[in-house]
Design a protein around this nucleic acid. Structure first.
Length: 424
RNA sequence: GGAGAGGUGGCAGAGUGGUAAUGCAGCGGAUUGCUAAUCCGUAGUCGCCUAAAAGCGGCUCCCGAGUUCGAGUCUCGGUCUCUCCGCCA
C-alpha cells in the first residue's frame, strides 16, 4: 500500500495519477489526510500527558526509596484523572490509525509515469513484435483437438477426478511438462536467480503483504480448517520470504526463481476463453522475483523483460510485447509488461508472461527495507514475472509445430524431452 | 493429539516490579608508519520542532487484554518455535 507520509505530502499528484487507472481516489485520499491530522494532533497531546505520568511515577518510586511514604501516597492520588484522559487520547490515536490503514488498503498502486491511459486490454500499447506468425495449413487444429489426438492431455478424466480446469497430462504430455520445468529453471539459474521451492499454502499475513488480500479472496482457494490459502502464483510465498526483514545493501538485488503449481478459482470467467488450456484452475509456472534498490528497479524490470523474451526466442515462438495501460494494470503494480505468443490455430494472441514492478507498494506491506550507505532505512522495490506460464506455452507449441510427422519439439527442449516429435 | 520449555535490537545473549547489561556485525569518528590494532559513538518507529540536521517527547522485550503510581518481569487469552511422547510419508 501507499505510504502515509507520501499520501500526506503528494495528495494531489496521487489523485491525478490514479486517474490513469480510472480510479477516483479523491474522496478516500482526502479522508486519509483528514484522519491523519486527527491522529497526529491526538498523539502530540497524548505523548505530553504520558510524559507527565512517567515523570510522576519516577517521583513516586524515588519517594518510596527514600522512605517518604506520605509524599508517595499524595502523588499517587494525583495520577488518577490524568490516567483516564491519557487513555482516551491514545484510543483516539489507535482508532484513527485503524481507519487510515483500512483506507490505504483500498487504494491501488500509483501508476508509473510510463503507463499509458486506457480503459481495457484493448488500449494496451504494443511496443514490439518479434518473429513471423507461423503459417499453418487450413486443416490445422487447436490444441484441445491435438491433445486428444496425440493422447497427451486428458481433459475429460480431469473433470471426473476434480472438475473443469484441472487437466491431466499423460505420457509425452507429462514428460513435456517436466521438460519445461527443468528448461526454465536451468535458464533462470544461468541468469543468476536462486532456485526456491516454496510452500504452496500461505497464511493470511502473507496474502495481505503481496496484495491478494483483502478483497481478492475470490481468486484464491481457501482451506477453512487451517485458515490457509492455496497460492495463485509463486510470487506470493517467494516475495514473502523477506517480509519483516531489514536487508543489508550488499544483499541487493535479491534474485529468486521457483517452479510451482498455481491455483486460481477464476470465479466469473466463462466463454470461449476458457477452452482447453487457455484458462485453468491449476497450472504450472516458473516465476522470477527480484528485490532491488528503488533507483535500480526500472532497469531491472527491463532486464527481466529481456530475459523472458530470450526464453521465447529459444522456444522458437513469435511474440509481441505490450505495455499495459492504466485500465488493465493490476491492483498492486506500478508498471507491467505482458508478453503474448501468437496461436495460429486459434488465431489469437495468448498471454504467456506478465512482468511487473511494484515499486514500494508491496514492500510497504511487507515491511521489507534495507540500510543504504547513509545508514538510512528505506523500502525496497519488488518485481516479478512469469518465466514462464506453462499451459499457453504448451498450447502454442503444439499448435504452431503440428506437422505431418507429428508435433515437432523445439531444439532447445529436445535434451529435456528426450524426443524430437510427439507422434500418434 | 498429550506433556514441558521458550519468544528481548541486524545477529547472539543477560535481565524475578523502579531509566533494557554485554558481545558480534554494519555504519560514523579518533588515533597509530605499513592487509592490522585500540578507543569513542551508533536499535527501530511515531509525534513536536527544523529549510535540513541537532534537539525534545511517546511507543516498541511475539500479539492482545488485565493488575499497579510504575510491567521485559505478575495474571488471563491468543500465537509461533523447540524438546519428549503418540501417530505418520
Amino acid at each position: 500500500m501507499l505510504q502515509l507520509s507520501y499520501v500526506r505530502e503528494h495528495k494531489n499528484e496521487i489523485i491525478d495519477r490514479l486517474k490513469i487507472r480510472n480510479f477516483d481516489g479523491e474522496k478516500v485520499i482526502n479522508e486519509i489526510v483528514e484522519r491523519d491530522e486527527v491522529r497526529r494532533q491526538s498523539q502530540t497531546e497524548a505523548d505530553a500527558q504520558q510524559a507527565e505520568l512517567n515523570k510522576m511515577s519516577k517521583e513516586i518510586g524515588a519517594a518510596f526509596k527514600s522512605g517518604d511514604r506520605q509524599k508517595a501516597e499524595k502523588l499517587k492520588a494525583k495520577t488518577g484523572e490524568l490516567k483516564t484522559s491519557t487513555k482516551e487520547l491514545f484510543e483516539r490515536v489507535s482508532k484513527a490509525e485503524r481507519q487510515i490503514n483500512n483506507l490505504l488498503l483500498s487504494i491501488p498502486n500509483v501508476p508509473n509515469a510510463q503507463v499509458p491511459a486506457g480503459k481495457s486490454d484493448e488500449d494496451n500499447e504494443v511496443i514490439e513484435e518479434f518473429g513471423q506468425k507461423p503459417e499453418l495449413t487450413t486443416d490445422a487444429k487447436p490444441h484441445w483437438d491435438l491433445a486428444k489426438e496425440y493422447d497427451i492431455i486428458d481433459f475429460e478424466r480431469g473433470v471426473k477426478v476434480t472438475g473443469a480446469g484441472f487437466p491431466i497430462y499423460t505420457g509425452k504430455g507429462a514428460r513435456l511438462q517436466r521438460a519445461l520445468i527443468s528448461f526454465f529453471l536451468d535458464e533462470a539459474e544461468r541468469a543468476g536467480y536462486k532456485e526456491i521451492v516454496p510452500p504452496l499454502l500461505v497464511n493470511e499475513s502473507t496474502g495481505i503483504a503481496t496484495g491478494q488480500l483483502p478483497d481478492k479472496e475470490g481468486q484464491m482457494y481457501h482451506v477453512q480448517e487451517e485458515d490457509l490459502y492455496l497460492i495463485p502464483t509463486a510470487e506470493v510465498p517467494i516475495t514473502n520470504i523477506y517480509r519483516d526483514e531489514l536487508l543489508k545493501k550488499e544483499d541487493l538485488p535479491v534474485k529468486m526463481c521457483g517452479y510451482t503449481p498455481c491455483f486460481r478459482r477464476e470465479a466469473g470467467s466463462y466463454g470461449k476463453d476458457v477452452r482447453g488450456l487457455n484458462r485453468l484452475h491449476q497450472f504450472d509456472k516458473v516465476e522470477i522475483v527480484q528485490i532491488t534498490r528503488p533507483e535500480d528497479s526500472n532497469t531491472t524490470l527491463n532486464n527481466m523483460v529481456e530475459y523472458v523474451k530470450s526464453l521465447l526466442a529459444k522456444l522458437e515462438l513469435n511474440y509481441r510485447t505490450l505495455r499495459l495501460c492504466g485500465g488493465d494494470l493490476g491492483f498492486t503494480a506500478a508498471l507491467t509488461f505482458d508478453l503474448e505468443v501468437y496461436s495460429a490455430a486459434q488465431k489469437r494472441w495468448l498471454e504467456v508472461s506478465s512482468i511487473s514492478n511494484f515499486e514500494t507498494y508491496q514492500a510497504n506491506r511487507l515491511k521489507c527495507r534495507f540500510k543504504d550507505e547513509n545508514n538510512k532505512t528505506r523500502l525496497v522495490h519488488t518485481l516479478n514475472g512469469s518465466a514462464l506460464a506453462f499451459p499457453r506455452i504448451l498450447a502454442a507449441l503444439i499448435e504452431n509445430n503440428q506437422t505431418e510427422k507429428g508435433i515437432k519439439i523445439p531444439a532447445a527442449l529436445v535434451p529435456y524431452t528426450g524426443f524430437e516429435y510427439i507422434t500418434k
